[in-house]
Amino acid sequence: MLSPVKVSEYAHALYRSLGPQAEAEAARRARNCEQSGETKDAAEWRRIQQSITQMRGPRES
C-alpha cells in the first residue's frame, strides 16, 4: 500500500504531465486494474484519482 505522501507525489506527477486529463487517466487505470482482477492496484489508482480531485478543487458551474 502506498503511503499518503507517495499517493500525493504520484498524483502531482500525473497532473503535471497530463493536466486536466490526469483525473480521467487515473480512473482509466483503476478500471483496467479492476477488470484484470488487480484489486490492490485498482485501489491505489482510486486513491491517486481522489488526490487529483482534491488538488483540483471544486469545479465551477
Rank of each mutant, 00 (worst) to 15 (best):
A22H: 03
K40P: 01
W45T: 01
A42L: 00
K40A: 15
Q35T: 04
E25T: 04
A27V: 08
A13P: 03
Q35W: 12
E23I: 05
E38L: 14
A22K: 02
A27D: 10
L14T: 11
A43E: 06
A26D: 04
N32H: 10
A22D: 05
A24F: 02
C33N: 01
Q21P: 02
S17R: 14
E44S: 08
L14P: 07
P20E: 15
Q21S: 14
E34K: 04
A42T: 00
A13I: 02
E44W: 03
G19H: 08
C33P: 00
A24P: 00
L14A: 12
Y15R: 12
R31V: 00
E34A: 05
T39L: 13
R16Q: 12
E25L: 11
S17F: 02
N32L: 13
Y15S: 15
A24T: 01
G19Q: 06
W45Y: 07
W45F: 08
E34C: 00
E23H: 13
Y15V: 12
L18A: 15
A24H: 10
A43G: 09
K40N: 13
Q35Y: 11
P20H: 12
E34S: 04
C33H: 08
G37T: 02
D41P: 00
R28T: 09
E23L: 14
A27K: 11
A27Y: 08
A22S: 10
W45H: 01
L14D: 08
R28Y: 11
R16N: 11
A24C: 01
E44A: 13
T39W: 14
A27I: 07
R31A: 03
Y15K: 07
E38M: 08
L18S: 14
W45M: 09
A42I: 01
Q21M: 14
A26N: 11
Q21C: 09
R16V: 12
G37A: 04
C33M: 06
E25N: 07
Q35K: 10
K40R: 15
Y15T: 15
S17A: 14
R28C: 05
P20K: 12
C33Q: 02
A42R: 00
T39E: 13
R29W: 06
L18C: 12
A30N: 06
A43F: 07
L18P: 05
A22L: 03
C33I: 00
E44Y: 06
C33E: 06
E38N: 12
A26I: 03
T39C: 08
E44V: 07
R31Q: 10
S36F: 06
R16S: 07
A30V: 03
T39S: 14
K40M: 15
A30W: 07
Q21G: 13
W45S: 03
S36E: 11
A13V: 08
